[in-house]
Design a protein around this nucleic acid. Sequence first.
DNA 1: AATGAATGAGGTTTCATTCAT
DNA 2: GATGAATGAAACCTCATTCAT
Lengths: 207, 207, 207, 207
Amino acid sequence: MGMNKVPSSVKDERLIMKRRDQMIKGAVALFKQKGFHKTTTREIAKASGFSIGTLYEYIRTKEDVLFLVCDYIYERVKDGMEEAIDTNEIGMSSLKKAIHSYFQLMDEMQDEVLVMYQEVKALSKDAQEYVLKKEMNMLRMLEQVIQNSLPTPLSEEDTQLIANNIFVQGQMWGFRRWMLQKQFTLEEYTERQMHFLFEGLEITKEV
Amino acid sequence: MGMNKVPSSVKDERLIMKRRDQMIKGAVALFKQKGFHKTTTREIAKASGFSIGTLYEYIRTKEDVLFLVCDYIYERVKDGMEEAIDTNEIGMSSLKKAIHSYFQLMDEMQDEVLVMYQEVKALSKDAQEYVLKKEMNMLRMLEQVIQNSLPTPLSEEDTQLIANNIFVQGQMWGFRRWMLQKQFTLEEYTERQMHFLFEGLEITKEV
Amino acid sequence: MGMNKVPSSVKDERLIMKRRDQMIKGAVALFKQKGFHKTTTREIAKASGFSIGTLYEYIRTKEDVLFLVCDYIYERVKDGMEEAIDTNEIGMSSLKKAIHSYFQLMDEMQDEVLVMYQEVKALSKDAQEYVLKKEMNMLRMLEQVIQNSLPTPLSEEDTQLIANNIFVQGQMWGFRRWMLQKQFTLEEYTERQMHFLFEGLEITKEV
Amino acid sequence: MGMNKVPSSVKDERLIMKRRDQMIKGAVALFKQKGFHKTTTREIAKASGFSIGTLYEYIRTKEDVLFLVCDYIYERVKDGMEEAIDTNEIGMSSLKKAIHSYFQLMDEMQDEVLVMYQEVKALSKDAQEYVLKKEMNMLRMLEQVIQNSLPTPLSEEDTQLIANNIFVQGQMWGFRRWMLQKQFTLEEYTERQMHFLFEGLEITKEV
DNA sequence: AATGAATGAGGTTTCATTCAT
DNA sequence: GATGAATGAAACCTCATTCAT
């Protein structure tokens, strides 16, 4: 588990889990609202329900909080994706089901995901790499589904490209909400994106 | 022009243009490297080639620098898009040409665009809205091309969706370079994305 | 008590009192010497015996220090005046006693009072009004003594005028020390001022 | 003339006079409103009707402006007092006339005088001494009138004391306007102060 | 003589982090 | 384990003064 990358001076593992939960919850709310840099450690402590001194019993630096937050979000998204993918459908409908569930997930977690992408660059190189790995894992998961679902297999590159497209279109729903969520319900958005994914613009012959 | 939203205590308009150019150039380089928050005003002044005092003759606050930078990038991207779109081709090939040029542009400006999207949230509400308007204008441009190029017109919503997809796929080339630019050259990327845009996965019949 | 008009991020009330005492003591010494504007916050912190960070745990802005100082001086002068006035003499001698004690007080606090009058204008409008009220209260005290001491009562306006005169003559002893304290001891000054207060120039008949 | 204590890099004496007049006028207005320290040199230049560069052709430092202002005010007050004193009355009525005119003068110049007394401490030691000398000269003038007016001469000390009292009571009219100018017209104030000056409280016998 | 752009020392304030209780 | 007062480096910004034009 990623959490162990951040050492704590407290011994009781159960307590650590509990405090970090409080912390992440508080921090996400604050980061959403004001961003990482404009949020102070004191605000984080307060929102977490304990003192600044206690906060520093469970982290070493402010950046650790961001790392914990990112890690937590990735973990939750990963769990969600695993669930989304874990279907007993076969063929195309398994891909459709996966996309549907993934878009649903991105809808539910749009704030968290937005926070994460806006703030990763504030992490150290090391932490960024760690987080990148997680992102790759999730891409792999999507690639798997794609490969398992299509009747005629795509090239490796094409699979990656399509996985990226789907991945990004899920985030896009949250990132560009000011535009998309005015025009579409989530259902409609999902339906249209799938339509274009599978059929394209369908005007090749005429060119 | 957006530049006038930021007042300067210097009178000479030509000089203002010159100094702000220096400033934007310096700032973009720094923001790329360390992000807005970790860049100090003194570093910006130094990178711009003048003293901290002079910097503040041309802006009021540090945020003004970010605004100027964002405005500049948008302006350049908009110019690029106008050029990309302004073609004497007709029909599908005009869309293809536009996408091709737009992806090219995103390749050239990937650092700048990345900086902009990572830092807009540090702008004031007002400035964010101003910048959002610019983004919308650019989307409109893409929508125009799409509508003018397709033999059978798309619904308004679909047009917007496709415009968003193209828009985001252009950015994706830069944002997800760690993955995409390992697998594809820009040419390949463009070709494959166009392929899927127009033809989709082509497996509908088999489902 | 006026002190509560300035919020502190420290909770312990006793500690606040202690630190602010240190602060006021240090600040008065500095203001005496160089004035409010030429004194830096860092100097204030140093003279108070703590770090700049700690200083700002007990105030919000530099102006707060000035306010605290003014408030403190008024409070001490008020206490002194209350004591001066609280006498079991009756009739004229109670007024004489009060003036005597008040002049004594102004002698002891001449530096502080000078500082206060020279710097109030650096306070915000609000704070200035607050401080003005205190001044009025002290005038009222003097008016009381005058009214209670004189065998034949003065008109309200005359009472106020005389109170102002006495008040200002007390300050004058400190403000114009370069002249008065060369010519008079405090005793002599008091004696002569009382003489003229009660008897005037005594040349009316001859006019 | 005091003005020559401040050197200028401009040669034309007439021009110097003109520019300094503009400067003093502008500066007094600003100092009245915001005090010396919160007024910037650029504001002074603007209020004077010329550029910051030009301002510095006629002074060396910001303090010079304050000195010029103080000097100007003293000069004007001195002129006023000379006029006030220069009377062909003799005896008591010459003193009365002088006080009357002096109080009138203090009424007209209350803002300027207030400014001056609040800001002198911002002058260098040297300048303060220079200004003090002027103040002493004015006191001497009052002492003269007193001595020449009274039928039975006062001791030197008493003369000085009375001169100080009158001097301060004139300033008091402006300094404590928030109180006095609510209760009295200038006429009433003058009349009552004279009354008490000459007759005192008139209750000595009863003590 | 007049201008105003350039300079940079120095001011106030914030905030991540420590450590004694 | 928890607290919160103390710390000080470092950030942003101002403004008196200079000097090339």
